[in-house]
Amino acid sequence: MVNLDAVEDTKNAILDEAMWIEIGKVLLEVVLIAVIAGIVVRVAKALIRRTFSVQIKGPLKYNGRRHQTLSKLLENVVAYVVYFIAIITILAAFDIDIRGLIAGAGVLGLAVGFGAQNLVRDVITGFFIIFEDQFSVGDYVRIGQAEGTVEEIGLRTTKVLAWTGEVFIFPNGNVTEVVNFSIHNSIAVVDVNISHDSDIAKVESLIQEFLGTLQDKYEQIIKPAELLGVQNLTTTEVVMRITAETLPMQHFAVARAMRRDLKEFLDQRGVEIPYPRMVMVQRSPGDSESPAIAKK
């Protein structure tokens, strides 16, 4: 048997004009909140990208990857904050008491913070590594016992690729001491060994002649190379030192090329590179003492 009172109540509720107007207002408010939140996020992201693009084009040359990472991080933070506020506002539009939700979220966040202190420390440290430009992707660094090229910088971890292929992964909170080799120019150091029989003044003149041709040959060299002079004296050789300022982390390649070219240059001009020698002494039958058989 159909309950006529229930049917009548349902009919009246459906035909209640005030209720539908109220529902329409709430839905319209929700749509407006969502649209406004989307517009705010888009405008904020555009402003962030615009700000970083202006810095890149300015007189200070910043690392592009660092700006991209930091820009993306700020965009995500803005989006999270705006959407969180939008969700809270929507819940308030449905007459839901948001004070209890906010209080519960605060207590939960505090509990998570105490339980994940290392994670929070890693995230905060990672943010400051990126923001302060301590090192960037592609830089050659030494962190603790690891040395290599920075492959990735995240908010929680940093990856360093060694030249032998190993990948070191550090929690950002453990990165306490960093040596960055890619910020300033490098110095290529080349030691030239000549024999004691060589004319040092002549060799210095030849080396100066050779150094005058380097900047035209190697674009990595920033300033003219210098001959510092005699660096060391040993029993078999005289060591002369050359230095050249190069672009960051180009000193290894420049030093190798300089050694090869300098060796050819000195060989063509008769400058002898020291090498071990052996002198053979023949003993005659009448000798009473035993002479040295070999001398290096």
Rank of each mutant, 00 (worst) to 15 (best):
M1K: 09
N3F: 06
L4A: 08
D9A: 14
T10D: 14
L15M: 14
A18G: 07
W20N: 07
E22I: 02
K25E: 11
L32D: 09
I39L: 15
V41A: 11
R42V: 12
V43I: 15
V43N: 13
A44C: 09
I48E: 03
I48Y: 03
T51P: 04
F52Y: 13
V54L: 13
Q55A: 14
I56M: 11
I56R: 13
K57C: 06
K61I: 10
Y62T: 06
R66I: 04
H67S: 08
L70Y: 07
S71M: 09
E75F: 04
V78K: 06
Y80P: 00
V82Y: 00
V82L: 00
F84Q: 07
F84D: 12
A93L: 06
D95K: 05
D97E: 09
A103D: 07
A103E: 09
A103Y: 10
G106V: 00
G106R: 00
V107R: 09
V107I: 15
L108N: 11
A111Q: 08
A111D: 06
V112Q: 04
A116L: 15
L119W: 09
L119K: 05
R121A: 10
I124N: 10
T125C: 07
T125G: 01
F127D: 03
I129R: 02
E132R: 15
D133W: 03
Q134W: 08
S136A: 12
S136C: 10
V137K: 09
D139A: 00
Y140N: 05
V141D: 04
G148V: 10
E151F: 05
G154L: 01
R156A: 09
T164K: 04
T164A: 09
E166D: 11
E166T: 10
F168I: 01
N172E: 02
V178A: 07
V179S: 13
V179P: 01
N180L: 02
F181V: 02
I183S: 07
N185D: 12
V190C: 03
H196T: 05
S198D: 08
D199M: 00
I200C: 02
V203W: 01
E204P: 01
L206N: 06
I207A: 01
L214I: 15
A225W: 00
E226K: 15
L227T: 04
L228R: 08
N232R: 13
T236L: 08
E237M: 12
E237K: 11
E237I: 03
V238S: 03
V238N: 04
V239D: 02
V239I: 15
V239P: 03
M240V: 07
A244Q: 03
L247M: 14
L247E: 15
P248E: 04
Q250D: 10
V254S: 01
A255D: 02
A255V: 02
R256S: 13
A257M: 11
R260K: 15
R260Y: 15
D261G: 04
L262F: 06
K263P: 03
F265M: 01
R269E: 09
G270E: 05
E272D: 15
E272I: 15
Y275A: 08
M278A: 13
V281Q: 10
G286D: 12
D287T: 03
K295H: 09
K296A: 12
